[in-house]
Simulated assay, not measured.
Amino acid sequence: MPFKVLHLDSESTWRGGENQIRLLLQAVQNENWQWHLAAPPGSEAIARMSHLAQTFAVPMRGARILTASFAVARYVRQHGIQLLDCQSGRAHNLGLFVKKLCPHVKLVVHRRVDYPPAPGYWHRQKYVHPSIDRFVCISSAIQKILAEFGVSPSKLTTVRSAVDSGPFADVDRQAARRILTNEWQIAPDQTIIGNLAYITEQKDHATLIRALGILQQRGLPFFAYIAGDGALRPAAEALAAELGLGPDRLRFLGVRKDVAQLLGATDIFALSSQDEGLGTSLLDAVHSGCTLVATAVGGIPEIVLHERTGLLAPAKDHQAFANNLERLLRDPALLERLRTEAQAHVARQFSLQSMVNGNLRVYEELIQGPARH
């Protein structure tokens, strides 16, 4: 009999959490595992993963969570689901209701953000509730936060997120550089600083843009791009204009489909987030051959070991961020050493197989019980 796992995902868009589900399901397609996915109608998760799992569309927002809990509970009974894996905050809420209706099912919650749960009685109960069998944290930093919040260490497991390295490692960097430097009309030997992220408060592009402004003031040669969109894009573009960062220095590319080629043409990947559960875009960049400059928040220091696999600056410190970028612009040997060491570190600690095996171990242990496992 296969293990039967239902993933609960309350998001309509496609972001890091949805991609981690996809990578897991895609890697494990055999008779030992039967995958199910419940997500909102019209969601990207259902659209992109219907060939990997049996899908179930159910509205989950607002007051609909009660209706959804009964619908999911019926689905659990009908399909003999043994374990629920809640992939978001709203799914966490839904999972607790379903567990009340189906007490036999095992309940797992994936935690992907690096800030403490909100204070208050309900939020505390949500995290220390006895119905939850395990929290899977995507970084050690998140596990530490939940332990400090009061979650029992016996219910905490770290399984770091991973990425599929293939699309990035297979890119011809020289060819990608030729194509994109021609598109941007810059010199082929220009040092390229790249950022791919939603332009949101969390990603704090203002720190990166201010750092680029400092590099320009110091007379350092570089070209930078920001690929992505978001509510704060107009403000980011206005800040760049205010600092005199024209299109010969910084370009906003919007949403791009050629992510692997962009990273393949990039020398330095710069991520100035003010919070980050892990930062899988950094893993994409490492597989693409980039050198990392980032902020020391959340799980990022588990990827970027300062002076070993990249350079770190405090969050919101554009001076320190600029100084790190300048070091790499002035020292090609340092840039190359950090790039090489980052590739070795990520291969050891953040492989796709490790992520898959880590999640499967949690599922097997809970479904079979510690003794049989």
Rank of each mutant, 00 (worst) to 15 (best):
V28L: 07
D204E: 10
G219M: 04
N30E: 03
Q353F: 04
Q26G: 03
L8K: 06
R178A: 02
A162W: 09
L107W: 09
I145C: 08
I132W: 03
S12K: 08
E201H: 11
R178S: 09
T309W: 14
S288L: 00
I193C: 13
C137H: 03
N182H: 03
R361E: 09
K4F: 06
V304Y: 01
Y75C: 15
A68T: 12
S165E: 01
I145E: 15
L250N: 00
G264T: 01
S10P: 02
T291V: 10
G95Q: 00
N19P: 12
Q261C: 00
F321W: 06
D172E: 12
K106N: 02
R218T: 06
E31F: 08
A73Y: 08
K155Q: 04
F56N: 00
L334G: 13
P221N: 13
A176S: 09
Q185F: 14
G298E: 09
V128K: 07
P332I: 15
V136I: 06
L271F: 02
A118L: 13
F269T: 06
E326F: 12
A231P: 13
R64T: 12
R74E: 14
Q349N: 14
V151T: 05
R210E: 08
N323M: 12
P247W: 01
T157A: 02
G17C: 04
F149D: 05
